[in-house]
Computed example of a mutant assay.
Amino acid sequence: MVSVGIDIGSTATKAVVFDGGIRGRAVVPTGWEPREAALSALRDALLQAGIAEGQVGGIVGTGYGRISLPIFDRRVTEITCHARGAHHLCPATRTVIDIGGQDSKVIALDEGGMVSDFIMNDKCAAGTGRFLQVMAGVLDETLDGLGSLAAGAEPVSLSSMCAVFAESEIIGLLAKGLEKERIAAGILDTIARRVQGLAGRIALRDTVTFTGGTANNPAICRVIAAHLGVKLHVPEDPQFVGALGAALIAAD
């Protein structure tokens, strides 16, 4: 059976077409119209797969915008979908770390890939993709540029994890002439400390799989792995793990 998973995140919407393997996938900016973003991602993924919408047997929605479309057969939390997708790609996974646009989460899995525990930060931008995006903007860098800038630099200690206060702090450091490289390293260090704080409230077990678009940044992966003292498993195209999990649930 052909199934589809659509993950409507705060910044990006992802769709995966699955029929025993990934046949098609697409990502579009969510913008101000999550419903339209989801339909656009669905059309693009089906086109890539060469499959008509009428051939789809089930569609599951996840992410912040999962309530926005009536075409979903089920709506499932991103916690469950990331766990399912990560376990499918790497059955040895016992912990999932996901840094999304507006939240970050650490998920514990049992041997069968079911969620046994989780902790989630969704009350503020600290430790999220949005935090990184704002901080990179202050330095006039892209997210990839932020990682490159930070490579090998001694991180400056940022006193605040709050996005608003950290932005003001960084502007002040720049005004004092502190090197951008040290500030960039400090930003990554702040993200890693936030993830470390979350992970410390759950029994962290190998294998640790890092999902979400932030996992595409090797510099961030290195810093988080160093803080946690583990080797991170990063799947190919980690941004699609939640949508894949949704498609697998739809296939069930």
Rank of each mutant, 00 (worst) to 15 (best):
V28I: 10
Q48M: 12
K180P: 00
P70F: 06
A86T: 07
A136S: 13
R35G: 06
V234P: 00
A151Q: 10
R75S: 10
G145Q: 09
V4N: 05
M120I: 15
K176S: 15
D237Y: 10
G58E: 12
Y64F: 15
V156I: 15
A125K: 10
D19P: 00
A151M: 03
P238H: 11
E236D: 14
T93Y: 03
T77G: 08
G137C: 05
I119D: 00
L158E: 01
A26F: 09
P70K: 08
E167L: 08
A250E: 11
T30I: 15
I249S: 09
G213N: 07
V16K: 04
D7F: 09
S148E: 15
I22M: 12
Q239P: 01
P218E: 11
S104W: 07
G112C: 02
V27K: 06
D98L: 01
V28S: 09
V76T: 12
E141P: 00
G172W: 07
N217W: 01
V28L: 08
L109W: 01
A38V: 11
G5M: 10
K231T: 14
I8F: 08
L204V: 12
L42G: 00
K105E: 04
V134Q: 07
V138I: 12
I67V: 13
I97M: 05
G145I: 07
V28R: 11
S3K: 02
C81E: 04
T62R: 01
G24T: 13
L46A: 00
D122G: 11
I107Q: 04
V76M: 13
V96S: 11
G172D: 10
Q196N: 13
I97F: 07
P155E: 06
I191F: 05
A192E: 01
V234R: 08
L248H: 10
F72P: 03
A41G: 02
N216Q: 14
I59P: 02
A203V: 06
R193W: 02
V164M: 04
L139S: 05
V138P: 02
A92E: 15
A108Y: 04
L174E: 13
G186C: 11
R25K: 13
S159Y: 03
L109V: 04
I67L: 03
